[in-house]
Nucleic acid binder design. Structure first.
Lengths: 136, 136
DNA sequence: TATTAACCCTATTGTTTTAATAGGTAAATC
DNA sequence: GATTTACCTATTAAAACAATAGGGTTAATA
């Protein structure tokens, strides 16, 4: 299941992408429009800033805004930062690889084989989908 | 992340598929060969029986065995029984659909849009992969 | 420079899910 | 009828999740 963190993060990004003017939007505004706990959203936006696609400005008139055009923001980055590894098992993860402790041989492991396919298909979706594709 | 339940279940099915003779294999044997807690595996195999692909026999000489050929066992069924819905959000689930409580309009929801794509791609993998494809 | 409104950070808590354990029941075989 | 094996119920320990609380810091504005 998708975590609420990711769900809220995506909704927040979409909300920012929909803004006409690219002025900073306060957290409180996003939280209200998307029905998200403000404090929770705060931490999510902080996390999202690590993607480099999201900028923020402090003080009066401040808030969050997109640095890049939505069409330049791929879901691979967003999903990895919010949800973590795209792979369902660490032994098929590109960015978070770890050997399975209980698995004697990766090549002959059925779980490995299946999850490799699933990862590849998910990756193709995320790579070919940008924030712009998610707008109404 | 894939649950251990699913991981173990897949390993157990693969182990059964690899057997030359199709005689029942006791849980204890599967558990030992695949390094799985026997009690945990018990409940997993019970769950898997609901797919209709797995048979069991009690008493001496009993155990679990595949009813169908591995090539006739698609991953869609196995994954749904073990891991639950293939969709990452209930509003895009085919078999476990539920409306999101916080979402005013599904059609315009960015999460819905993205997760629909992800579901479709995962579904394609699971539909086109049988237990036979996972054998070494 | 004082104020304001926003971002930033740490810690805690309640809930749910997961992974496993324990103990007993039912059925098949010898 | 003793043994073997699957079947069922309940409990628990640990982890992850979703939020809450409270305060601290920063930077515009007046």
């Amino acid at each position: 299941m998708l975590s609420k963190k990711t769900k809220y993060g995506l909704k927040a990004l979409t909300f920012l992408a929909k803004q006409d003017k690219k002025e900073p939007i306060p957290i409180a505004d996003i939280a209200e429009h998307e029905n998200i706990s403000q404090k929770f959203l705060e931490s999510i936006l902080l996390t999202l800033r690590r993607t480099g696609y999201l900028g923020s400005k402090k003080g009066k008139g401040g808030g969050y805004y997109l640095i890049k055009d939505p069409s330049e923001i791929p879901m691979t980055t967003v999903m990895r930062v919010l949800e973590g590894p795209i792979a369902m098992v660490s032994c098929v993860s590109l960015n978070f690889y770890e050997q399975c402790e209980d698995c004697p041989d990766e090549q002959s492991c059925s779980v490995h084989k299946l999850m490799l396919k699933v990862r590849d298909s998910a990756l193709e979706v995320y790579r070919n989908t940008t924030l712009a594709d998610l707008l109404p």
